[in-house]
């Protein structure tokens, strides 16, 4: 399976990367995916996006455009090729 993880806002500015592509051979959930990408980038996405295994208020993680809050939060399983968009706490208006 091919996952494209799109990075935004301060994560993009900190890492200098817009997207990270990873290939995996079995389904994983969001938290596992975040650990995997953190290792690849040497950048702690878990700390940036979660607190006590919960999504920090204002953080947005989309699986193919759908907020994982409305799927199964950090336990949401990724079972096929997917685009995951990751935003640290952000807002505007």
């Amino acid at each position: 399976m091919k996952l494209s993880i799109k990075l935004f806002a301060t994560i993009r500015l900190d890492t200098g990367l817009k997207v990270v592509d990873v290939n995996i051979d079995k389904p994983i959930n969001i938290i596992e995916m975040l650990k995997l990408v953190s290792d690849i980038l040497d950048y702690d996405l878990i700390e940036k996006l979660t607190e006590n295994n919960k999504i920090i208020p204002g953080v947005i993680i989309l699986l193919n455009g759908v907020n994982i809050h409305h799927i199964n939060k950090l336990e949401t399983k990724i079972t096929e090729d997917a685009i995951i968009s990751v935003f640290p706490a952000a807002a505007g208006g």
């Binding site: 935003f87 640290p88 706490a89 208006g93």
Partner: peptide, 24 residues
């Protein structure tokens, strides 16, 4: 707060462009 203490100071309101675009 992550939004008012970090997100807005770093990128201003334009941090939203990609967020709103990604959700369609």
């Amino acid at each position: 707060n992550g939004v008012t203490g970090e997100g807005l100071p770093a990128l201003g309101t334009k941090v939203l462009d990609n967020i709103i675009n990604e959700i369609g």
